[in-house]
């Protein structure tokens, strides 16, 4: 026998994560993501184009209605570029969070019948959102060219950092909500509301500078996506937000990730009994 491994299920000892097991199942991350992407665009005429069209249409709507009405003070960025840059990174969070939070319930039938590390499910559903982001990013590049928007070379650092931060934010909250959703289906109704509230609390369609009260700014920076959005826009504006605000956001992000993943792990074993 090439590989003999001993597997022990012990009711009295349970670790945090079995990394070896996650590594062994790496292909499942791929297959779950692949399946979700396939299903998402099955029987659609436009297919993957929807991933690009959604933020584009949103950008047009916000530009037409909000861009004029807000009467924004001195902008370093053209408003469409400002909105689009915020939207595509935000969409990782909003789509990813919604997918992840419902993922365990949606895959309940599989969970009840077969074992694999459960973390694969919410992670894969977030990777679907990352895939959409990459598609939309192509369009984003075209928008940048159209508006002749200069991009600083530090984008090579800040854009990946932004992507990573938004994945972390989505994963933490996503895992937490996914686990809670298995236990209490109430959360199904909380999620769209939560996403909507955070959307308005995060500077996506308006700049944070619009808010006059400095204290309120600190509160808003606690949005886990605040830092990601700032990172993503930095190579375009070369204006970094108040570092304190960024640190607050990153801390909130890390804390949520810890809470979410630990809570998920602690309830994971019982998903099959509850789902």
């Amino acid at each position: 026998m090439a590989e003999v491994y001993e597997d022990v299920i012990d009711s009295s000892r349970r670790g945090l994560f079995n990394w070896k097991e996650l590594w062994r199942n790496q292909e499942l991350f791929y297959f779950f993501t692949w399946r979700d992407i396939k299903i998402k665009y099955k029987q659609t005429v436009l297919g993957f184009l929807w991933a690009v069209l959604q933020p584009l249409l949103m950008m047009l709507i916000f530009t037409l209605f909000l861009g004029r009405a807000l009467n924004l003070p001195d902008q370093t960025l053209p408003y469409p570029v400002y909105v689009f840059s915020g939207l595509i990174i935000w969409n990782i969070f909003s789509t990813g969070l919604t997918n992840a939070a419902n993922s365990m319930v949606n895959n309940a039938l599989i969970i009840k019948k077969i074992y694999f590390p459960r973390l694969i499910i919410p992670v894969s559903s977030i990777l679907v959102a990352v895939f959409d982001f990459l598609m939309a990013f192509v369009l984003f590049a075209l928008v940048l060219v159209y508006y002749q928007q200069p991009v600083s070379i530090n984008a090579l650092v800040y854009w990946p950092a932004s992507l990573l931060t938004s994945i972390m934010a989505t994963l933490g909250l996503g895992c937490w909500l996914a686990a809670l959703n298995v236990k209490y289906r109430d959360f199904r109704y909380v999620i769209p509301f939560l996403v909507q509230v955070l959307f308005f609390l995060t500077p996506i369609i308006y700049p944070a500078s619009l808010i006059d009260y400095p204290y309120l700014q600190y509160v808003l920076a606690a949005s886990p996506m605040y830092a990601a959005v700032e990172f993503f826009r930095f190579p375009l504006t070369s204006v970094m937000a108040n570092p304190t605000l960024v640190y607050i956001s990153l801390s909130a992000n890390a804390l949520l990730l810890l809470i979410g993943v630990v809570y998920f792990r602690r309830t994971e074993d019982y998903f099959a009994d509850l789902a």
Binding site: I9, S11, K112, I114, Y270
Partner: peptide
């Protein structure tokens, strides 16, 4: 035995790759 649900008490040691078919066509 298939690790779908944990035991409340006790221990299981397996020495080999386990595949469980609790239903056909899962997923």
């Amino acid at each position: 035995l298939s690790k779908i649900t944990p035991p409340t008490k006790g221990k299981i040691i397996s020495r080999g790759r386990i595949a469980s078919l609790l239903e056909v066509g899962t997923g």
